[in-house]
């Protein structure tokens, strides 16, 4: 699977981590995969955008090492939904971070005193993680830049990015994203909990997902589970499909699977979710899946 190449004839979306909360290297989750969130968008003009830096980021960037990243010539944009462990835990173990010449820009919103950079520095505090600190030191690896998102619209090469804060019950808000490149649109909405469980209440979600060719959406819970998990900060597969229906999306990828969700349960809910779809093609995101839009 060659994912490192930017594409001039569309956008390739590759799922490297689809699991929520904690990596699950366990048999019941082996088929859909146990790595925490990472999706690579290979866009035009060689632009590479990684959605989140979960454990899948470790293996995605190891794959990039066969190409420009191994020579210290890669340029990568990493967009963080937020800084919970499952969205950042792959970063210190990514081989491309230790190759000088690579450039990585991390986009996200402050969630720790002092901002995004301080938040990520906590992860590589030597008490927890005695790695050469590529965030602070110039000579140990990639050059890392931080972009605290304040303006909702910005550009990454030819890609127009819109980022808005998403509701999360009573928790810190998460960043949702919309990427537009060559008339193709990918929306990434994870770790979102809608007021009253209704995606229609979130103008941010509707705006980001509007007419997307692919909506990647949090589907951590089953509809019957969510009553007991108010304020856990996640959605159900049903809400994901409802947003896809309302926003007129072409495809909906159910994403950020609960660590306890088995492969067989995911097979079953895919069938149920497809039945609810009014327009979009709905599928369960699986590690290793590559889609050409």
């Amino acid at each position: 699977m060659e994912t490192g190449k930017g594409r001039s004839d569309g956008v390739r979306v590759t799922f490297w981590g689809v699991r929520g909360s904690i990596p699950t290297p366990d048999e019941p989750q082996a088929r859909y995969g146990g790595n925490t969130p990472c999706v690579l968008l290979s866009c035009s003009e060689g632009t590479l955008i990684s959605l989140d830096g979960g454990m899948g980021f470790r293996w995605m960037t190891a794959d990039l090492m066969a190409g420009k990243a191994g020579r210290g010539e890669e340029r990568l944009h990493l967009m963080l939904a937020h800084c919970h462990w499952d969205h950042i835990q792959g970063i210190p173990f990514s081989p491309m971070m230790y190759v000088a010449g690579n450039r990585v820009t991390i986009h996200g919103r402050q969630s720790f005193e002092g901002g995004l950079k301080e938040t990520l520095l906590h992860q590589v505090n030597p008490s927890y993680c005695p790695v050469p600190n590529f965030f602070l030191l110039r000579d140990v690896g990639a050059t890392v830049e931080f972009h605290e998102i304040t303006d909702p619209v910005f550009h990454v090469g030819p890609v127009r990015v819109t980022s808005l804060e998403l509701p999360r019950g009573n928790r810190l808000a998460c960043s949702g994203y919309r990427f537009e490149d060559q008339d193709l649109t990918v929306a990434y909405l994870t770790d979102v909990e809608y007021p009253l469980g209704d995606p229609g209440t979130s103008s941010a979600a509707l705006e980001l997902a509007r007419g997307a060719d692919l909506l990647i959406h949090d589907a951590q819970f089953l509809p019957e589970e969510v009553q007991e998990r108010v304020n856990w900060g996640h959605s159900t597969w049903r809400q994901a499909v409802e947003l896809g229906n309302m926003a007129g999306c072409r495809r909906v990828a159910l994403f950020h699977h609960d660590p306890g969700r088995t492969d067989d349960q995911l097979d079953a809910l895919e069938v149920e979710a497809a039945r609810l779809a009014r327009g979009p093609e709905v599928f369960v995101a699986r590690e290793g899946l590559a889609l050409d839009l």
Binding site: P25, G34, N35, R58, Q89
Partner: peptide, 19 residues
């Protein structure tokens, strides 16, 4: 039984990927 970080990849399925 796995060191450094959890490995949810096919190459580690037999001996296990949990830390």
């Amino acid at each position: 039984v796995r060191g450094s970080f959890p490995v949810a990849r096919p190459h580690a399925r037999r001996f296990g990927g949990n830390t």
